[in-house]
Design a protein around this nucleic acid. Structure first.
Length: 259
DNA sequence: CGAACGACCTGTTCGC
DNA sequence: TGCGAACAGGTCGTTC
């Protein structure tokens, strides 16, 4: 479920509750996630987001890498409330605990040593500009939507926001990435920046079950123009929004605005 | 290089 | 109502 704005929301909220605190206990409740080191007694120095990954940095140089994939979410519990169904692990601190709830069990957790010189990920919240987008897309024949979803190119955009960005930019998801003009990339960049910023400010999109670290819904679902709205009127031109499948993903677009 | 598909999992919604 | 199919925010690997 979580895309960039949702992971960024968790990152900001986690910083406030766990930085400079020490892990008291790690409990793994899913056999797929076993063998994730010890953590107990380690102090957390930093919480960062790389694309859709969350990275907890410890004072000893270790980094805990968490990816929530499709259905994972995190919840902060101040008291020892009952564990919700599908809780996959918990990390306890003196002030409370983080629990990870993940019905589909796709989420991954791993421990790594800090890697100096790991390549910086192009982050759409900070760096999403027409010149670099056009340069990276040069000669690429894949659909522009697949290009936006490629985490090796731009990290953090997922299916919801790819649909929304292309709609705002009035570009068909099927256009070959290499065929967009500079002006079109400018529209993509402007749409991307504004949509991702707004969605982050809204603490994400709660389209079915996304909740933030404190169990609150996001607000961006009230701003969606095409995602999940097949048959509804395009807010721009009134044409009916369509759903089609593009490389296996449900793709929502306005056939009139996005030729 | 890229498209298509299956895997990984489980829950919810849709259509008959 | 019941039941199976389709679908879901992500990614990886294989085959064509």
């Amino acid at each position: 479920m979580p895309e960039l704005p949702e992971v960024e929301t968790l990152c900001r909220q986690l910083k406030k509750v766990i930085v400079n605190t020490e892990v008291q206990e790690l409990v793994i409740l899913d056999s797929k996630l076993n063998h994730v080191g010890r953590l107990v007694g380690w102090q957390i120095l930093s919480v960062r987001r790389r694309g859709k990954f969350l990275e907890l940095g410890f004072e000893n140089g270790e980094i805990l890498n968490l990816h929530l994939r499709m259905s994972g979410r995190l919840l902060w519990q101040r008291h020892q409330d009952a564990l919700p169904v599908h809780t996959r692990f918990q990390i306890s601190f003196s002030k409370g605990r983080i629990i990870c709830i993940d019905p589909r069990r796709f989420a991954t957790l791993s421990l790594q040593k800090r890697q100096d010189g790991s390549p910086p990920i192009a982050d759409p919240l900070k760096n999403f500009h027409a010149p670099s987008l056009r340069k990276t897309a040069q000669g690429r024949r894949l659909p522009v939507k697949s290009f936006l979803l490629d985490q090796n190119t731009i990290a953090g955009i997922g299916n919801i926001y790819a649909c929304e960005i292309l709609h705002r930019a009035s570009i068909s998801p099927w256009r070959k990435a290499g065929s967009l003009s500079f002006k079109e990339w400018q529209r993509v960049a402007a749409a991307g920046l504004s949509i991702l910023r707004k969605a982050t400010a809204c603490r994400g999109t709660s389209v079915s079950d996304w909740l933030d670290l404190h169990g609150k819904k996001g607000e961006y679902q009230h701003h969606l123009t095409v995602y999940g709205r097949a048959g509804c009127a395009c807010p721009h031109c009134g044409e009916k929004v369509q759903r089609m499948v593009l490389s296996g993903r449900g793709t929502y677009f306005c056939p009139s605005c996005q030729k």
